[in-house]
Structures are given as C-alpha cells and as structure tokens.
Write a protein that binds this DNA or RNA. Structure first.
Lengths: 227, 227
DNA sequence: GTAAAATCTCGACCGCAGTCGACTTTTTGG
DNA sequence: CCAAAAAGTCGACTGCGGTCGAGATTTTAC
C-alpha cells in the first residue's frame, strides 16, 4: 500500500539506465558486459532482467535519451521558410549525421530500428513516430502552399522519404558512400526524383550533377572488377 | 607439391557447408550450435574457424546457395513483354516472398545485407549485384521502348527501387504489413510514384486504392492510441 | 501484530561463440 | 629419403548473455 516497493523500483531502473549511459558512452555497447553493468548499477545481474528483457532493450532505452537530444537540436535548425526540397534534405541529413556519428552505435541502432526483433518492436515504433510526424508537418505546410500536387498522398510520400533515408543509411554501412557530401548529393537527387518524377535529375544544378557522376563512377568501379 | 592438402581443404569446406545447409534448414540458424555443426561436419570446432571467420559468415555461404535457386525461379517467371511497372512489382515481390519465406532467416539475412558488419560486407555486395543488374536490364529495355523519359537516370531509378524494396521488407518486420497482398499494394504504389511523380496514386485502379486506404487506416490506428 | 502470499534480489550456473596452444599431417629443400 | 618448417586439426578453455531457484523484503489479510 505504502508504495515503498514502487519507489525503489523506479530508483533501481534509473540506476541501471544511468550506469548504461555511462558505460555505453565510455566503452561502447558491445564492450560492456552485463556483469560490469550490474556492478556499476549496484544490483545483481539477475535483477537487471527484471527490468529489461535483454541487453538490446537497454540499448534502446539508451538510444531514446540520445535521440531526444538530437531531435531537439534538429528542430532548432530547421528553416520553415526554405523550399520543400531543402527542408526534406536537411531533415534527412540531420538524422543521418546523428545516427552515423558513432559508426558501431549507428549500425546496431539501424538494425534494431529497421528490422527489429520481437523485443524491440514497440520501442522502434515509438521512435520513428516522431520522425514520421516531423516529415508530415513539413509536407502538410508545403501542400497548403501549393508546392505539391493536391492529389498527392502525404503518407505515401512519407513512406518514400523514409525509404530514401534507410537506403542512404544502408549505403553508408556498405561503404558505397564515404562522405556526408556524397550522401547529401544522393539524398537530394532521390528526393527530387520522388517529388518530380524520373526526369528530375535535370533539376539539379551543374555542381550537383557533376558530383553525382563521380559518385556513380565510384560505385560502378567498386563492383565491376570481377576480382 | 602434390596438392593433397588443397584437395582435402576443399572437401572439408564442402563438408562444413553441407552440414550447415542441413542443420540450418532443419533447425534454423540460431538453434544450431557450432559444436553441433562441427560434429555434423565431422571436424573439430576450431577447424571451422580456419574456414570461416564467424558463424555469420557460414550463414552467408548458406544464403548464397538458397538465393541462386530463388533467382533462377524468378527469372523463369518474369515476363519481358509485361508493362514496366508490372515487371518491377513482380521482381520486388519475388524477392520479398523468398526472403520472408522463413521469418527468422529473413530477418538475419536482411540485417546482414542492409547493414553488413565488416565480415559480411563483401558477400553482401556480391549478392545484391545480381539483383541490381536484373533491375538494370528491365529498365534498359523499357527505356529503349520509350516507356521512360530519355533523360531519366537508370542508376538513380535502381537506387530508388532498391530503397522501396528495403522499406517494404522493413515494414514487414515491423508488422506494418501483415500479408503479401498488402505488401504488393504498397510496392505498386511506391513504384508508380517513383516513375510518375507524387500524383501517381491516381494511376492505380479503384480496387488498389481501396486497399491502400485500408492499409493507411491500419497503419495510423496502430500508432495513434498513445496507449 | 503476525503469518501467509506476493514480489523482488541475487549470484552460481548453463549453453554458446570464439580462442589457444599442443599435436598431427603435409610440404619443402638439401 | 629425411628432418625442419609450414599448414592444418583439435577440444579444453574463456568470457559472455541469459536463467533459475533459494532466500530476502514488502504487501495483504485477518
């Protein structure tokens, strides 16, 4: 009745997450063992599993904290007056920069978000909601301004933009993209294509098209030689 | 000089892969232990690591065999006379059906292909080459037939189609899609959008649009209630 | 206040992927 | 042909994530 138990539980939970944030940030996720984490949190190892189903779930809790921060920063930078394409590119690149900031962290995070296991399904859904609704706002404003055809379907566009984001993230982890500039070129072209159809490359400026030609060369080169 | 060694090595390698195919197919990847695999292959556990860097690498070798089979089947079914959109949808759905045939296998496979670790980067690159060149052929034919604007960039289109494939795969693993019919609706609409711009939904027939409306509802429903 | 029930805590323990170094087999070179 | 070097094989061992059940702590019921 008194709720002593509930109180303690909150404390313990916090202790675990705090310890995780410290250790993961310091030594990385894979390099932190559960024994270590338990010791740092001042609880038995078994206790942790009363709060989290798996190590991976602690990782997601850790991510949430980081993401809150990153999203807030992104929001501040977004310019609502800029052209639609620029806003979308900025949003996508912002996410990308954050996720790939630490390569190993990013890969784990991407894997969990894009192909979640049973245990991370809920967490992943919650996280990408925010991202999707952000895009929804941008598109909504734009549609009202007449930048988009009236009969276009916002959700379908969002799906597509999400697809682009995942693709670029994947390209990064497959070493098809090696710099953020390259990534931005690809993102911009893909977004142009979605918004304006397959002839959209023509809309890019000369500078971008040159960069794109280089990117293509690099890509094909890496695959052609049958080795 | 005699090459006895080389010969034996090929044998051993084959024995390991064969054992893996048998066990993975029968009991699944995660349920098969390296000790078991070693016993089945008739070698010591340590020996396996002379042939493969990690369990995951054996998994990819296993995948290659499966994929060869699936691709051949797909090729036979593809109708070169069909409209571009139908061909692309068929190709994408074929892949999807294969990969998700076994849910757990598919998730592991997708994770390795889309966000490969250092050890699987090469294998993943080789595998998706075939898929990409397949799409390239289809698009090439189509461009010659004038179904596509002359100034569209095939590689960019391929990138986009790949993005769609990954997105739909992801949606499947996030339970946003629960049937292959749903998946096909989404794939078709996304492809239409890429080929003909954001107003393309209008190109779908009434039946598909109804299905899409249902899909959207289900999607939003699952996210709205703050629980 | 107390005894029974419910809940939480703990670390020894399990099964696993991957390593290591002692041992065996093949190749080399004189 | 033989001994030294190189290459390959092996399973006991290590460290890890996750489980389990005995015991401690809180809540409930009277």
């Amino acid at each position: 009745m008194s709720g002593i138990r509930e109180q303690k539980k909150q404390q313990t939970r916090k202790a675990i997450i705090d310890a995780a944030i410290g250790l993961f940030t310091e030594k990385g996720f894979e390099q932190t063992s559960m024994d270590e984490l338990a010791r740092a949190a001042g609880v038995g190892k078994g206790t942790i599993y009363g709060y989290f189903k798996a190590k991976e779930e602690i990782f997601l809790a850790y991510c949430e904290a980081e993401i809150d921060f990153a999203f807030a920063a992104l929001d501040r930078k977004l310019d609502e007056e800029a052209p639609l394409v620029d806003q979308l590119v900025a949003q996508t690149m912002g996410q990308l920069t954050f996720v790939t900031g630490n390569r190993e962290f990013g890969r784990l995070f991407a894997r969990e978000m894009v192909f979640p296991g049973e245990s991370s399904k809920l967490a992943s859904r919650e996280l990408d909601m925010r991202y999707l609704s952000k895009l929804g706002e941008v598109l909504g404003r734009s549609q009202q301004l007449g930048e988009l055809p009236e009969d276009s379907d916002p959700l379908l566009l969002i799906a597509h933009l999400h697809a682009i984001y995942i693709l670029v993230l994947s390209s990064f982890y497959r070493d098809d993209l090696t710099s953020m500039e390259d990534a931005e070129v690809l993102v911009r072209l893909l977004i142009l294509q979605v918004l304006y159809g397959p002839a959209a490359v023509a809309l890019a400026n000369t500078e971008e098209r040159k960069k794109w030609e280089n990117l293509k060369l690099k890509f094909l080169e890496q695959r052609e030689p049958k080795r």
